[in-house]
């Protein structure tokens, strides 16, 4: 079973997710403080894990643009980054764009923190007009 695309519509408390596996363009945007973080992120982990067994040849670009997230979402994000880092270590090209509003220093610091453990992934901090 090949997976084409994982899309989850954004809600007030969970982000919009769009993983286009065919093109390797992934994005997560919005607020993230779901009722049950494990339930929300579980399917995303599963899909990603399956995909990373045979990633697209052109590699992966992940755009992340969070307005707010809670600690569970931060942990979930770290898990995703760890998966991508492993895959990058194995030779997949992985680029992550961390978008933050140019007046939001906290979001920028979060981005810097997230990039700490990444060696093989290209991590870009992208400031957006706030």
């Amino acid at each position: 079973m090949t997976q084409e695309r994982l899309t989850i519509a954004g809600t007030e408390r969970s982000p919009e997710v769009d993983f286009d596996f065919a093109s390797g363009r992934f994005s997560m945007r919005g607020e993230s403080y779901p009722e049950d973080a494990a339930a929300f992120f579980g399917p995303i982990f599963d899909a990603l894990r399956r995909y990373l067994q045979a990633p697209a040849p052109d590699g992966i670009t992940l755009d992340i643009e969070f307005i707010y997230f809670n600690s569970s979402s931060a942990k979930a994000l770290m898990n995703i980054l760890e998966m991508l880092e492993k895959s990058a270590a194995d030779g997949t090209r992985v680029e992550i764009n961390w978008h933050y509003a140019d007046d939001d220093d906290t979001m920028k610091e979060f981005g810097e923190d997230f990039s700490e453990d990444l060696e093989h992934v290209t991590f870009n901090l992208v400031s957006v007009d706030g």
Binding site: A74, K75, E82, T106, D113, F114, E116
Partner: peptide, 20 residues
């Protein structure tokens, strides 16, 4: 090691979030 790094980061995160 990784878990410890994550733990430090998470504590930082939640401090920052709570500050906000």
């Amino acid at each position: 090691e990784r878990s410890l790094r994550e733990q430090r980061r998470l504590v930082r995160f939640s401090d920052r979030l709570q500050g906000q």
